[in-house]
Design a protein around this nucleic acid. Structure first.
Lengths: 204, 204
DNA sequence: AAATATACTGAACAGTGTTTATTTTATCCA
DNA sequence: TGGATAAAATAAACACTGTTCAGTATATTT
C-alpha cells in the first residue's frame, strides 16, 4: 500500500510548507504579520486549507516554535566549545543572549508570548524547549556536583541562570529597561557585562 | 469663566471612568476581555466615544498601566519596612514577586506585553515605572555605596536584581518553567527560595 | 464509466481597532 | 426666550482577525 504512505508524506510536506512560510514571516516581518490569511497567501492556498492541517493557530505556532528551538540548539552546539564547566556556563549564557538579539521575533514566540503554550495541555509536558533546556541543566548540574558554584541544588542553579538572562532580554525586548535611561547603543554590551558579572558572582 | 474649568473636569472624569472600567476588567477577567467595545459597554457609552478621550488603545492602556504602577508603589510602601539595606532588598524582591502573583494580569500590562510602550516615543522617557524603579535603585545604590553587595556599579546592581526576579516571574507566567517539571503547587515557594538565595549570593 | 473518498475553497460569522458622517445635546448671543 | 453656534455622542462602516461550513473540484476505487 504505497499510496497511503505517499499521502502521509504529502500531508507532512504541506505542514512543512505552512511552518516554513510562517517562520519566514516571523523572522522577516515580525509577529504581527503572521496571520493565517498572510500565511495562506504566501503558500498560495486558501486560509481554510490551513485548518485541514492544523486545528488552530496555536497548534501551528507550536510547530513554528519547535523549529525555532532547533535553531537555538544549533546555536548552542556551535558556540559552547569549552571543556571547563564554568566557561561553558558563560558561553551558554552569552550564546542565549546573542540568539535573542539575532532572532528577536523568534525569541518572542519561544519565551515571551502566551500563544503557543495554550496548545500544551495542563498535565502534558512541553517538549519544544527540552533540548535547549537540557544543555543548560546538564552544565549546571555538573557545576553543582563539582562544587564550582554557590548552589547546592542543580534545579535552583539551572533556573536561576536562565531567569537572570531571560529577565534582561525580555525587559529589553519590551522596552521596560528604558526606565534606566541608559544609552540604547551601549545596551547590548551592558547586558553582556551584567551576564558576565552574574556568572562570576555564582562561582564558588 | 467657570465653564471651561468644568469642561476640563468633566473630561478628566470621563477619562477616569474609562481607565477604571479598563483596570477592573483587567483584574477581574484578564487581558483578553479588555476590548474597546467591552469597555464602552461597561461605562454605557458607544465605542467611538472612547476615541474622543484617547487617540488609540495604546494611549488608554498607558493610563491603565500608570494606575497599575500606583498599586505596585503602594505595595512597596507597605511591605518594605526594614532599615537595613540588605533586608530591604529582600523585602522588595519578595514584594515584587507577591505583587506579580496577586495581580498577574496587571503585571502583564506593566512588564510583559508590548502594547502600552508603543505610545512612548523613541526618545521620550517612560514615566509610569519611575516611582517603583526608584525604590529599587535607591536601595541598591545604598548597598553599593556601603559595600554591602558584590557590585561596583549601582546600575548593574539595580538591573541585575530586577532582571533576576522578573525573569522567574515571566517564565512562570508564560508557562515556560513547565520544562523543569516541578510541582506546580510548590512553584511559588520554590521561586521565593530562589530569590532569597540570589539575595544571599550578592551579599559582599 | 460511475461511485466514492479526499482535497480544497468561497463565503460567511463573530470578533477586533478605528474613522467618518450624522444626530443629539449644550452653550452663546441677539 | 429663540435661533445660531459649538461640543459631545453615536450609528454605521472599513479593514482586519481566527474560524467554520456548505459546496466544488480532484483522486481513487469499484
Amino acid at each position: 500500500m504505497g499510496i497511503t504512505e505517499r499521502k502521509e508524506r504529502e500531508k507532512a510536506e504541506m505542514r512543512r510548507r505552512i511552518v516554513d512560510a510562517a517562520i519566514d514571516m516571523f523572522v522577516a516581518e515580525g509577529y504581527e504579520k503572521v496571520s493565517i490569511r498572510n500565511i495562506a497567501d504566501k503558500i498560495e492556498y486558501s486560509p481554510a486549507t490551513i485548518y485541514l492541517y492544523y486545528k488552530d493557530k496555536d497548534e501551528l505556532l507550536y510547530d513554528v516554535q519547535a523549529e525555532a528551538f532547533g535553531k537555538l540548539a544549533a546555536y548552542f552546539k556551535a558556540k559552547i566549545t569549552a571543556a571547563d564547566p564554568l566557561e561553558r556556563v558563560e558561553q551558554l549564557a552569552l550564546a542565549y543572549f546573542d540568539f535573542s538579539q539575532e532572532y528577536q521575533e523568534l525569541y518572542d514566540l519561544m519565551f515571551i508570548i502566551k500563544a503557543p503554550m495554550n496548545s500544551v495541555e495542563e498535565d502534558e509536558e512541553w517538549k519544544n524547549g527540552l533540548e535547549a533546556f537540557s544543555y543548560l541543566r546538564d552544565i549546571m548540574t555538573e557545576c553543582v556536583e563539582k562544587k564550582l558554584v554557590r548552589f547546592e541544588d542543580p534545579m535552583t542553579a539551572t533556573l536561576s541562570v536562565w531567569a537572570f538572562v531571560h529577565g534582561f532580554i525580555s525587559l529589553n525586548l519590551r522596552c521596560r529597561i528604558k526606565i534606566a535611561q541608559l544609552d540604547v547603543l551601549a545596551l547590548p554590551a551592558f547586558v553582556r557585562s551584567c551576564v558576565q558579572h552574574y556568572v562570576n558572582t555564582i562561582k564558588a
